[in-house]
Design a protein around this nucleic acid. Structure first.
Lengths: 340, 340
DNA sequence: TTGAAAGCGCTACCAA
DNA sequence: TTGGTAGCGCTTTCAA
């Protein structure tokens, strides 16, 4: 037998209103006597209110939507960029009584389906691009926190026109420049760039890092050479070209690990004294052999911050900063050697 | 302005019933003429029904709850046991129109809060123990698929008494024996066992693997030696004891990677020709140096299977098998050497 | 084929 | 301090 607020009210000999008041911590509206009685019955039946009914009337739900963008219909959850954010969110959401609905967004159409369905209190969108941002911005009115979403500067310069849109980013340009600088400081002047394939024309995480890399080179008076820019498909080519560079900046730890393994297999890592620096500092970075020198991006923290912002927004009491940029932290381990 | 079914009905000049019928693919109850008109308006407003209202009346929701057990309030999402399951679930759930709510369960109390809240169509519970199983079994009536949940044999021998409870497991005993056997075949007779801390008295994943390890030894006529059973806190001890064993069975790739790194650091891995086999085959296993010999458990597949079961259950058409046991697959790479 | 109306469980408003 | 009741948006009878 289903137990509803009505049943509780009947059994306690009070009105549903009183029960509702007790549930919703408006206990001061109920006499202590009745309050205790109601609580006893609630406990007896292990009752907790139906969230659908509650959401229906309140137009709010304690439900957070976590939207991951990926072109592939299948999200790669072994990617720490994906899961660390989730970890951060859950750690804040659970104690605050929020539930997290995870959804993979691969097209604009997916977005339309989402909000209207579930009356989210807020959305956290990870890795969106400009097109998707615009789509979701105009079709949904709930607060949205964007993580690692790189947009045209026009948006960032005009944040006030985007109320209820919040951003948590790494300054990818700075962070890539930081990595490049570290290589430079270690006397490396011929630095390759290795990343997943990307479109130079569109603002994206990788594209920003690429810019940072070029900038750092330029600042040092060094020429950028497009011949030493590689994608994850070009390990063979990198092997053949290895005399063209003494160090490489890799845009992700995982990719760096693959690359190093490949070079080791071909006697071209330790033997030629190749230096490697990457970005992320995933849990496995320090288990690599040699342990990865990398820049910690702290995705977990981003998740926590996003959830904290949403919680404040729901409470509606505090001001919430629209833009939060997290610094990267250089983690020196063993893959970068001073060049002799 | 909010667009509801009522608004659509008004604008189309029909009743809400007709609109409802169109939405729910009972289109045959509506004349073609009206149907087209309604569809046009729906499209115009990009309307989609409020799931809360729908769930309220139907007591069903297209919502799946994914419950992870962990003692810690904070779930470790970098654990592939956690995320691979999620990946499998989402890959099936999304195309079928299900949404996945992720929740971390660390106590019996968490369970009570859950079901009543959201009217799940089904639950997927990962890594539960006997106590939690019983708690959730008696308090919830929706279908539940348990993944990697080890229970007293009494339950498994009497599955018919547990309708709507489904199980997807690895036979951890078999899989651990398989790993041990592989070591044995390679002439190792002194085999250590390394795992996270566990309670020998309670049925659990690790406890089952421990049993499998002992069984395999026994079958070979080898004595089990409790001195070579270690936890993740005892790397130092393992180093000191290294003459006591020539190979080690580790219950998780991640732990194996940590152990190997530790031993390498102390010149006690390659130098003493230690062999290691572990379980999981996470994505990083092959990037280890040397690449890990391990047993693939395929957690992604488990997630897919769980979601498939639930989908069938919701449709209510097909019979669903209550117990599915997935085999492990030996992946031979480079951490096991034939003993000389 | 169509629509009116009841009711899902809850909160919020207003009156007592 | 208490309770009656409207109404959230939808599906589902049931009657027309």
């Amino acid at each position: 037998m289903k137990v509803t607020i009505k049943k509780i009210a009947e059994e306690a000999g009070v009105s549903v209103t009183s029960v509702s008041n007790v549930i919703n911590n408006k206990a001061h509206r109920v006499s202590k006597e009745k309050r205790e009685q109601i609580n006893a019955i609630i406990k007896k039946y292990n009752y907790s209110p139906n969230m659908n009914a509650r959401a229906l009337v309140q137009s709010s739900s304690r439900l957070i939507g976590l939207l991951y963008y990926s072109q592939k219909p299948r999200l790669d959850f072994s990617d720490p960029f994906v899961t660390d954010v989730l970890e951060g969110i859950e750690s804040i959401a659970k104690p605050k009584g929020f539930f997290t609905l995870v959804h993979n967004v691969s097209s604009a159409k997916d977005i339309a389906d989402i909000q209207k369905n579930w009356k989210f209190d807020g959305l956290i969108a990870v890795g969106f691009n400009q097109a998707l941002f615009e789509k979701i911005h105009e079709s949904l009115s709930v607060p949205i926190v964007f993580i690692d979403t790189h947009l045209d500067q026009a948006v960032y310069h005009n944040l006030t026109s985007y109320p209820d849109r919040y951003f948590i980013n790494t300054n990818d340009r700075v962070v890539a420049a930081m990595a490049t600088d570290f290589l430079l400081e270690n006397q490396h002047e011929e630095i390759a760039f290795l990343s997943y394939d990307f479109d130079e024309g569109e603002t994206s995480v990788i594209q920003q890092r690429f810019l940072g890399y070029k900038l750092a080179l330029e600042k040092r008076g060094l020429a950028f050479r497009s011949e030493v820019v590689y994608t994850d498909e070009e390990f063979e080519k990198m092997l053949a070209d290895h005399k063209q560079y003494t160090a490489v900046l890799v845009t992700a730890d995982y990719l760096a690990m693959q690359f190093i393994q490949f070079m080791k297999k071909n006697q071209a890592f330790r033997e030629i004294g190749l230096s490697v620096i990457s970005l992320d500092d995933i849990k496995y970075a320090q288990l690599n052999d040699p342990p990865l020198t990398t820049i910690r991006l702290d995705q977990v923290r981003k998740g926590e911050l996003a959830m904290e912002k949403i919680e404040k927004l729901v409470k509606g009491e505090e001001e919430v900063e629209q833009m939060t940029v997290l610094p990267g932290q250089l983690i020196i381990r063993e893959t970068v050697q001073k060049r002799k």
